[in-house]
Design a protein around this nucleic acid. Structure first.
Lengths: 214, 214
DNA sequence: GTTGAAATTAGTACGAA
DNA sequence: TTCGTACTAATTTCAAC
């Protein structure tokens, strides 16, 4: 919740936002675009590709790192080759006010690659990478089910990962203009969500429908 | 070891492509561990951290790249700072035999960061990053809903990303032994999924329950 | 914000263990 | 295979413009 309230104001880029405010201009964006495709490119080559001088590239590179826009660099690893051929999603319903415990236990599970708190029917979604389906089972029954904070789980296997883009940026495609500076304030838009044809799963609706407590 | 390469159930539908290109030993794994934490480390520093010679490190580094175990390197970007403060999951039901079209349309959507085909109630899960909630709405109604292949969607917002580990490896934690060499062949385990206490959403069950065709 | 030096470091090649 | 060294190419730093 804290994320959303913070994020909601996002695109305007107005002062007083999130701590250290580094105004990201087009060149910063270009740098991010290059670095997400090739995280090991030298700053010299980066400068050339972006069309600025070396020194400038170093300055901006460091600024992006210091600001936190770039959180780090990582190798993209083929999970199958690494021995983790099975990917599963586990949707978890968490007992209220036991989130702290839930988070603490999560940190102790190395097979968890991603965990997000969501609206809708469930409270959280966990993505795990394991060697075989048996490992998913033991993960869910032996570990997750034994956490008091976990009320219910629902498991789904990933059959194929159709696409996986390193890191999406506003400058991608034609949504760029809209993304960089929203026409109307985000807060206003949030209070007035247009839910026309969109089938949106509200938290209340979903949780009421879920009756199994095992 | 060979069981690992064969158990690629989650992998692409390209059989025969999963040949055992490279036997990954402990040192390879160590290299992957270091590189996922610091994708920009020099090979010299990598060699020292892993405990091998520089020349050896170069050889193994290239081997991992050539083999495909390392698919590339990327910068981890803070989406909020980049102007994409809203993350949503869209669960999609796809009309049978229109997958090709669905995939083609997906490629045209720059705000999609991740798409996976799943078992369970829905057929696919899409993760999108956008500037505001309005963009999610327009994405779902204007773009997804207009794809004939899309039968139904269900949208959920991500309120907080609790944890996001670059790339999980078998050597993480204590599951290492089990992950690296499964006690029984994965194929056998798959045909005999132990579904004791695990609430598993099978495809048929789920899809039957979903009646909305809009 | 840019260019062009020096100093450092990275990447390659090859022989030896 | 792996290691160690020497060699070459490139990058980063730092200066002045």
């Amino acid at each position: 919740m804290s994320e959303i309230s913070r994020n909601g104001v996002s695109s305007t880029g107005q002062p007083g936002r999130i701590g250290i405010g580094l105004e990201l201009d087009d060149i910063h964006m270009k740098i991010l675009e290059v670095l997400r495709e090739n995280g090991r490119i030298s700053v010299a080559a980066l400068a050339e590709r972006v069309g600025i001088s070396r020194a400038n590239a170093y300055t901006r590179f460091e600024a992006l790192r210091a600001d936190g826009a770039i959180k780090g660099f990582t190798a993209e690893i083929d999970h199958v080759r690494a021995g983790l051929g099975i990917t599963a999603l586990i949707f978890v319903t968490v007992r209220q006010q036991m989130w702290k415990q839930f988070r603490a236990e999560l940190a102790r599970m190395p097979e968890v690659e991603y965990c997000a708190i969501t609206t809708g029917q469930h409270d959280a979604m966990i993505q795990v990478r394991v060697a075989d389906v048996a490992a998913v089972h033991s993960m869910v029954t032996d570990r997750l089910a034994n956490i008091p904070a976990v009320k219910a789980t629902e498991t789904v296997f990933i059959l194929d990962e159709v696409l996986k883009r390193p890191y999406v940026l506003p400058s991608d495609g034609r949504q760029a203009g809209q993304a960089r500076r929203s026409s109307r304030p985000a807060q206003e838009a949030q209070g007035d969500v247009p839910l026309g044809k969109m089938r949106f799963v509200g938290a209340a609706e979903g949780r009421a429908a879920l009756k199994k407590d095992d």
